[in-house]
């Protein structure tokens, strides 16, 4: 299978809030929470941003790095758990906004935090089978935790888009596989504003079981081990889980740190592992190898073995900011502003 990443782009809203500011509102120890989650700030979208605008921005950044005719894009899939519409696709707006429509297929995906990696796999299949020349997979979210819920300290906003194809590949996807079970660790029922979760049940039987099993299966399938990769990135619901999973698999902190964005921007859900991968591709050298494992509650993991090619240099442009430039932001809001921006105030 000679399919790979042809281009990629990310987008992170500029606003940030500190866990301490959230904790103060709810009368808990913010420093302890910040330490416990390994999160110093999380991104907050403006009132005029949503999954559609974030997906468009990420996709447009992707197109700034590559010369292709948008009409050659045959598929667009947007993965998110916070699509602005329950019914009416995000993907059609993205298609129109990059002038890829109308001769293409498009749909929205939902699989908690791994809808974006699922979209990549779908595009890989379409490209490999020559059903489309290029496919775009987006993972993007403006996730919400219920006020005062532990999730409120991490649920944030951001997204990344990947262009998959056989031509002009800048990072080849050597292998991908998934691991899926029915594990109800986190959910949001139809019509509900905020999700619920199983507390500590989200850890061992959910995140760790799926991420670690999927990772080991990929090692086995590819005959590789942690020493074969310069970078590893895992789904990052907080700053602790991915580090712990990485260590258990034998990765060093040096291999993990580039893709670990959650301490500064929080958990961007469907965008999280993809933004981490994008941050790695921003700096990786040709021939370096990247190990990627996403996770979505409910539950499943998608893993990827990726090798960076010489063509990666072609994506380096100052037409759009790097992921690191977007991660860095000093535009902090207080809890009241955050609550206003996120529609948490009854009006």
């Amino acid at each position: 299978m000679d399919v790979g990443i042809v281009s990629y782009g990310g987008y992170i809203p500029r606003w940030r809030i500190k866990p301490q500011d959230i904790a103060k509102t709810w009368g808990v120890d913010g420093d302890a929470i910040s330490r416990g989650l390994n999160i110093v700030s999380k991104s907050v979208p403006s009132p005029d941003e949503d999954v559609i605008t974030i997906s468009v921005e990420a996709t447009r950044n992707l197109l700034k790095k590559v010369q292709i005719d948008p009409k050659d894009i045959g598929a667009i899939y947007v993965g998110s758990e916070s699509h602005p519409y329950a019914v009416k696709p995000t993907a059609t707006v993205v298609a129109e906004a990059i002038e890829a429509s109308p001769d293409l297929t498009a749909a929205d995906y939902e699989f908690a935090c791994k809808a974006g990696t699922a979209a990549i796999q779908t595009c890989m299949g379409l490209v490999a089978s020559d059903m489309v020349k290029y496919g775009i997979a987006v993972g993007s979210d403006t996730s919400q935790g219920a006020p005062g819920d532990p999730l409120e300290y991490s649920a944030s906003a951001g997204g990344a888009a990947f262009l998959l194809g056989k031509e002009k590949v800048v990072a080849k996807i050597n292998e991908t596989l998934s691991y899926t079970t029915d594990t109800p660790d986190f959910w949001r029922r139809e019509g509900q504003t905020y999700p619920k979760h199983g507390g500590r049940f989200t850890g061992e039987p959910a995140y760790f079981k799926h991420v670690l099993t999927c990772a080991k299966n990929l090692f086995q399938r590819t005959g590789t081990g942690p020493e074969d990769y310069q970078y590893a990135v895992f789904h990052q619901p907080n700053g602790k889980f991915p580090v712990s999973a990485g260590k258990k698999l034998g990765f060093s902190i040096d291999q993990i740190k580039t893709g670990l964005l959650v301490p500064r921007i929080g958990n961007t859900y469907s965008g999280a592992v993809l933004l981490g991968l994008a941050a790695i591709l921003d700096i990786a050298d040709p021939d370096e190898r990247v190990f990627v494992v996403g996770y979505g509650s409910g539950a499943g993991s998608d893993a990827f073995d990726i090798t960076v090619r010489d063509e990666i240099e072609n994506t380096r442009t100052d037409k759009c900011p790097t992921i690191e430039e977007m991660v860095e932001s000093n535009n902090f809001v207080d809890y009241a502003t955050y609550a206003k921006f996120r529609g948490k105030i009854l009006m």
Partner: peptide, 20 residues
């Protein structure tokens, strides 16, 4: 130019997008 929400009539209505 960037891509943002321009408005919506009510919370359950179609959302309008465009340049800012």
């Amino acid at each position: 130019a960037t891509f943002r929400k321009l408005g919506e009539q009510e919370k359950d209505d179609v959302i309008h997008y465009g340049y800012k």
